[in-house]
Design a protein around this nucleic acid. Sequence first.
DNA 1: GCTCGCCGTTCCGTTTACGGAACGCGCCGA
DNA 2: TCGGCGCGTTCCGTAAACGGAACGGCGAGC
Lengths: 160, 160
Amino acid sequence: MSLSTLARLAGVGKATLSGLENGTRNPTLETLYAITAQLGVPLTAVLSGPAETPTVRGTAVGATLLEVFSDTDATYELYRMRVSPGPAQLSPAHQAGVTEHVTVFSGVLRAGPVDAPLTAGPGEYLRWVSDVPHSYAAVGDEVVRASLLLRYPRVTTVDA
Amino acid sequence: MSLSTLARLAGVGKATLSGLENGTRNPTLETLYAITAQLGVPLTAVLSGPAETPTVRGTAVGATLLEVFSDTDATYELYRMRVSPGPAQLSPAHQAGVTEHVTVFSGVLRAGPVDAPLTAGPGEYLRWVSDVPHSYAAVGDEVVRASLLLRYPRVTTVDA
DNA sequence: GCTCGCCGTTCCGTTTACGGAACGCGCCGA
DNA sequence: TCGGCGCGTTCCGTAAACGGAACGGCGAGC
């Protein structure tokens, strides 16, 4: 399933899909639904709740993740991330070969391996190999909004 | 929880919330997430999969529902609806006092009580008391997109 | 080696979701 | 009875998501 054919089948623009996969778009429900309906995937499958860094109910601290896209090969997962000011959020090591790509939209984010975090402001980009524990923290008192792309080494799956 | 306070807490405009509840907006993930995060409700809770009229996997026929909003009193539920050309979709009677409001965005929809369905085109609006079996069908060969609001009689709940 | 077709990206004009402000309404206290 | 406050709706300018078209890159086939 190529991006072009999915765009045609789902009745959305290729630009929309491209932007979605690269985390540069904030899709409407209409768009996301058209795509998932075509894929035969329930929305709840791609909109999994907070996974690695659960939100604490009733508080404004912490980071929340919102998975917005995941390809059928499970080679990458795209999240929208919000990191509120406060103590750093920790994430355990992933499997070997996983790379994390973060693009910051607003605020200043300090993230990466716990022993060597990186800093990025609006429009900037971070990447690290995530087979070691890593952290996320907002620098300053502004909420950080960013996209987080997890890229996995290719896995063998049964095509639907 | 009033619309005004929810808008302030969630950091979204009152116009956005108002339009959402009336089915005249097609929210972005960002917006919907801001609201549900403030309510302490996971996105998957408001984005329940097709309920009454399940989609048949791998086919393009039938109607799909996408719940996009539900207030904490459970007095109304807002769905986005897509009805594909083909045989009419049936829905059983709801509890007494439930009213269904449908606003058509595109296509022509024929819906309502099975013995007296109504027809509406783009921009038009249907309403009926849904304590009898009712149906939905697309007129012509164009997919119908519409919003569906289920309004329940007030129920007694414990305020959060 | 060249050409054709499909890939994903980028550009661009249109559409529309967005937040802020202004509005009318209803409730409540003075 | 009147004024004030909070409610939900509507108006409006701005920001951005949208689809279509154009682009360069890559692989297959003649």
